[in-house]
Amino acid sequence: MNRHLLSSADLTRDDVRMLLATASEMHEVQRRDVKKLPTLRGRTIINLFFEDSTRTRSSFEIAGKWMSADTINITGKGSSASKGESLRDTVRTIDAMAVDAIVMRHMASGAAHQVAQWVDASVINAGDGTHEHPTQALLDAYTIEQRLGDLDGAHVAIVGDLTHSRVFRSNAIMLRTLGARVTLVAPPTLMPSGIRPWAAADGLTLSDDLDAVLASGPDAVMMLRVQRERMSGGFFPTPREYTVGFGLTRDRLRALADANSDAVICHPGPMNRGLEISADAADAARSLVLDQVSAGVAVRMSVLYHLLAGEGVAA
């Protein structure tokens, strides 16, 4: 594995398998009374978040603490960045304090790649703009496999606001690495421009008909959040119209169950209930939403362990 985790594409199938196997053991640690492992004692991890986050930041922080690393949170708002310091100066200042890892979320796509050029610490991309969020893809793969078994050959539909979704990008890459069949569903306005060459090269199927895709009985349906904070134009006329075309409504939940009784539903959160996902779907027995959160800590422990515990750059 690389020293950094910037993209799902950094990980080979063997890397992903090792990370998921480790996550499974870490998940078991989570059920113990004493959750502390000494593995990363003496390591310092900075969570540098320029964008709001509840689950990603807290799960990285808990993951680091449970492995005995010192974790420190820095948010854009409370840091010198709000005084006008450049990103380069901010991260180089942090790096000068000899930290071992920087877990970074930033609103600009490519920010983590850029920072990785500037620092000695390991950089973990916890979301960069509309680009990538590899640990989310790992925890989604982990959660689905816990319920359904090996993703190799499974059919996963990713539905919704693809244009603004880093979760989709990281997931599509990782699911293909694991051998899953991937169908992308979005209204034409939210289908990223330039996706066709990628889809053709990587074997991703594109669709704008959610009902047809659900009727084909996918093993997992991954609903994406409609990211209104990133939308400047009219991607769809009204929220109601979006729901009618692309929301996982009660009727569609039933259609999915009819087509594949074992199908599961994921959502990276936070959910817009009533917009992209109905309350019935979010709270259904086949919904893995809370399992995803629970897996988040185990998966991030696994990532921190493999990036930070071994000698220099692990083979």
């Binding site: 480790t22 071994g310 692990a314």
Partner: peptide, 13 residues
């Protein structure tokens, strides 16, 4: 996870 020589070799699952 409790080894004291983690830093001296590549990690393993």
């Amino acid at each position: 996870m409790h080894r004291d020589d983690l830093r001296h070799q590549p990690t393993r699952a």
